[in-house]
């Protein structure tokens, strides 16, 4: 039991050390996926505009408050609309966007397969 709690304590302290780095990584991950609305084709992460810099702070603060990536994205969608996300959500607006390429792939495969069978007969 004593060993086990020691183990937990070590684990926790390791976690605290790495949490700082994790937070920065999470922040980068989120901001890379956000469009800098006043730039042309740049993510918030890549931009140094006023807007992007403020948004980086907001994301940072939200992470500190314990928000998850999804919650932060939802918060920003509420402010700016889905336009701000580079990774479009899978919802009724985007079913076709995500599925159509895959359908085309399957269709193409089916056509090729059919032809091959027909010819080989």
């Amino acid at each position: 039991m004593k060993k086990f709690s020691l183990f937990i304590i070590i684990l926790l302290s390791l976690n605290i050390n790495s949490s700082q780095a994790d937070e920065i990584e999470l922040q980068n991950k989120i901001t890379k996926n956000l469009r800098c609305l006043i730039c042309q084709g740049q993510s918030v992460f890549d931009s140094d505009s006023d807007f992007a810099n403020s948004l980086k702070i907001v994301v940072r603060n939200k992470i500190d408050e314990g928000f998850t990536e999804n919650e932060i994205n939802d918060f920003l969608i509420q402010k700016y609309g889905e336009w701000i996300l580079y990774d479009p959500k899978f919802n009724k607006n985007t079913y076709l966007l995500w599925l159509l390429p895959l359908l085309i792939f399957l269709l193409g495969g089916a056509i090729i397969f059919k032809k091959l069978i027909k010819i080989n007969k």
Partner: peptide, 13 residues
């Protein structure tokens, strides 16, 4: 000071 409140308002600049 840091532009974060403007974001609360949904402002871009």
């Amino acid at each position: 000071k840091d532009g974060t409140k403007a974001i609360e308002w949904g402002a871009i600049g």
